[in-house]
Design a protein around this nucleic acid. Sequence first.
DNA 1: CGATAAATTGAACTCTATCAATAGGTGTGG
DNA 2: CCACACCTATTGATAGAGTTCAATTTATCG
Lengths: 238, 238
Amino acid sequence: MNAFERKLLSFGAITPQEAAVLTKALRDVRTVAPGADVIREGDKPNDVNVVMSGFAFRYKDTLSGRRQIFAYLLPGDFCDLNVALLGHMDHSIGTLSPCEIAHIPRATILDLLQHPRIAHTLWMCNLVDAATLREWVLNVGQRHAEHRIAHLFCETYTRMKVVGLAPAKEFRLPIPQSALANTVGISDVHVNRSLRTLREKGLAKFHGGLVTIPDIRSLIDYAEFEPGYLHLRLRDQP
Amino acid sequence: MNAFERKLLSFGAITPQEAAVLTKALRDVRTVAPGADVIREGDKPNDVNVVMSGFAFRYKDTLSGRRQIFAYLLPGDFCDLNVALLGHMDHSIGTLSPCEIAHIPRATILDLLQHPRIAHTLWMCNLVDAATLREWVLNVGQRHAEHRIAHLFCETYTRMKVVGLAPAKEFRLPIPQSALANTVGISDVHVNRSLRTLREKGLAKFHGGLVTIPDIRSLIDYAEFEPGYLHLRLRDQP
DNA sequence: CGATAAATTGAACTCTATCAATAGGTGTGG
DNA sequence: CCACACCTATTGATAGAGTTCAATTTATCG
């Protein structure tokens, strides 16, 4: 079973048979180089994209040239389910590593949405994304630099764990520190200093695109991380 | 036609007949006092709430007692459509003024979602909310205090205009400055100072819960406001 | 091995927070 | 009608967090 199916089934709204129907829609898979855009603000595509492997991210650039990252996309995540209904992209998607991206024709999606349970499942993907966005607003709006980064690490660790990409006390996050800066709304220089402090406190380490968390409990406490908003059906504790 | 119907029809995915079916679900309307909670984080309600009149807001409090506001809800807006699918609230809804809140049984919603076009329309409400949240992340993450407030005013003005609540160069936003602070992620003292600057620059005035915008073009330029993310079908310019 | 991007550090400056005190406004009860 | 309490707004002073500029070091990759 691939990450996409695993994620959809985790919502508990569809049967494995229905999930298989969805997976059959993922025939057209293409490779995208790292640092490229999968889709850009303003595009009106006829496909919906799903990350099958690799890392991607959601972002938008300001008129004055500043960049804000809205999400990191892991295998199994939809890039742009919203265009199926809203028609045009209001932000962009870029890749962080070589990615395999599945393209589903918009018409196929709209067909699949005739099945209420499938529609509900896809909708739930959006709802969790929205809940996560709220948490990001709170993170950027109410916490100091170090805590923002710590919270981001907790969240990403948790999400990685779900798709089996964080086996031990570490996970791969192949981004430069400047991307981290564009994620939590601080300058790259200050990211660097905050990372050093987090390292010195023994809470988390970020080096070479690898996040290491010696004791996740301590980091969770420090970041005041409460995973409820991810709406996971937890089998075991993080 | 009420604000709810007007909003749903604006997405262009359902017929007036279908919208009327939805409106029929709004039988159970109750009044909520200002300053009360409509629903709280952690609740697992059996109803979905819609604002029929008055102002409400979405928010969440940190463990350490800081508050972040995620959205202002106007007449016609869903409070918590997400619980119909996700089961529990990951944030809270409070009122800013006396509100009339319609309660729709969750089962009714799930019935209505059997109609794909109705489901799409409700889904689109969520998608626009999510797009707006992205813009808030960008606003809080990348702009200075004055620009954040200016952007918020532009957005709210535009939304108010759509539901007919901003006829002239002003609109009602019945909140204290401290709520503005919790919205754009700065302290209440700094909100006060930023408002003074905006006023002195002739860009916007905020007094007694009334926002006055002498020249919306200037404010839009100042805030770099681009309304694409609201996904409005514009008849005329703002 | 050289070229280029990323990370790191220092120093000066800016924006924003916090603390504290004052002023304005509103509603209630005497 | 005034006095009081309470909430909100405003202003000053000071401290703190974060930014920017600039230079240096360390990776990374063809």
